[in-house]
């Protein structure tokens, strides 16, 4: 018993020393982007640059809060988040350093933070998915307010508790103000919009005939159509600049306390090069943050995609609090 215990203690000490050694010589990333999505491209970076990368995967929110708690002692060099909100929060905590112009100018203006603390690496657009059996593109309203029309009663699904829906709603507020957002939510509710758990459930519900339309993220559908081209669901955007087309970006910023800022900059540049951008578009069906030749998911070009998405201040998307208050007021949360 006693010897077993000392063995355990000894192992602990060994592991402890080993791990602290690793910290000094490599790039440490806190990634809110899940391993399932980005692991291959992170490995490509390691292979091509020879820089060792240690990644802590977790939820963007949790990692952002952890960074704020760690403060100046954070071992992280780079924060790569799934949504603008988390990056905004860390920026507000004054923990991210200003990026050099050489990186900022790699992406269009709307894809960088106004504080110059982070840039987008790829994006996920909001779309309207619809049944190809019980509806068609002609029936689709030109803007998101059209969905409150009585002819859509009981036919539209959404996921009010889902983070991507809430980001969209924050975009709505930034574009049209709180009152318009509240009115829209009320009208949708009175029009019997159906609640679902997440985006995936929405797509499946359309296929199963429970609903005919759904407000969802653009890339879920491709997972179904990839294996089954006759899948009875399609998707489309609203008119250019409509909040219903919000492009919610993932992005990366470098910590002020980073001791490997150069390697971190190399990482961001790598993610903005064609190779990585193609990976995001072709393998995980996202929208690129820099110009990529040819057709993007959903059959649009990069330039068209920029015009479709509404222009919102990405850092302001961090203000989820008021959005959640609105959802509660209307009784959706």
């Amino acid at each position: 018993m006693k010897s077993l215990f000392s063995l355990v203690v000894l192992t602990f000490l060994l592991l402890t020393t080993q791990i602290t050694e690793v910290f000094a010589q490599s790039l440490t990333i806190y990634s809110g982007r899940s391993k399932a999505l980005v692991d291959p491209i992170v490995n490509d970076f390691q292979r091509q640059t020879g820089i060792r990368v240690n990644v802590r995967y977790g939820g963007s929110t949790q990692l952002a809060v952890a960074l704020l708690e760690e403060g100046r002692r954070s071992p992280a060099d780079l924060f790569w988040a799934q949504d603008a909100g988390a990056l905004g929060a860390v920026t507000q905590g004054e923990m991210l350093q200003e990026l050099p112009e050489s990186i900022l100018e790699l992406v269009p203006e709307q894809f960088r933070s106004e504080n110059k603390t982070w840039v987008a690496t790829s994006g996920r657009a909001r779309v309207l998915a619809y049944s190809t059996v019980r509806s068609s593109e002609d029936e689709i309203p030109s803007n998101i307010n059209g969905l409150t029309d009585p002819k859509f009663r009981n036919r539209v699904g959404w996921a009010p508790s889902n983070a991507s829906f809430q980001a969209f709603l924050t975009g709505f507020r930034l574009l049209h103000g709180d009152d318009a957002t509240r009115d829209w939510l009320r009208a949708m509710r009175e029009n019997d919009a159906q609640n679902y758990v997440n985006n995936n459930a929405l797509i499946q519900a359309i296929a199963a005939g429970e609903i005919d339309f759904a407000l969802t993220n653009h890339y879920y559908l491709f997972r179904y159509t990839e294996s089954n081209p006759n899948y009875p669901v399609a998707q489309t955007f609203f008119e250019n600049g409509d909040p219903g087309n919000l492009n919610n970006v993932s992005g990366a910023g470098i910590l002020k306390t980073s001791r490997n800022a150069e390697a971190a900059q190399q990482f961001i540049s790598f993610m903005l090069e064609q190779h990585a951008q193609r990976f995001f578009t072709e393998n995980i069906f996202e929208y690129p943050a820099t110009e990529v030749e040819g057709e993007l998911p959903g059959g649009v070009t990069f330039q068209e995609m920029l015009e479709i998405s509404p222009q919102v201040d990405l850092d302001a998307l961090a203000d989820l609090e008021q959005t959640i208050r609105l959802l509660r007021e209307v009784g959706l949360l």
């Binding site: 690793v22 899940s34 391993k35 802590r56 995967y57 977790g58």
Partner: peptide, 25 residues
């Protein structure tokens, strides 16, 4: 949550994997 924030960096447990994939559906 504890695993996410306190584990050694690069720690790759079963639960973290389940979460990582299922959150992406």
């Amino acid at each position: 949550p504890i695993t996410f924030l306190l584990s050694p960096i690069g720690f790759d447990s079963l639960a973290v994997n389940v979460w990582s994939y299922s959150v992406e559906a």
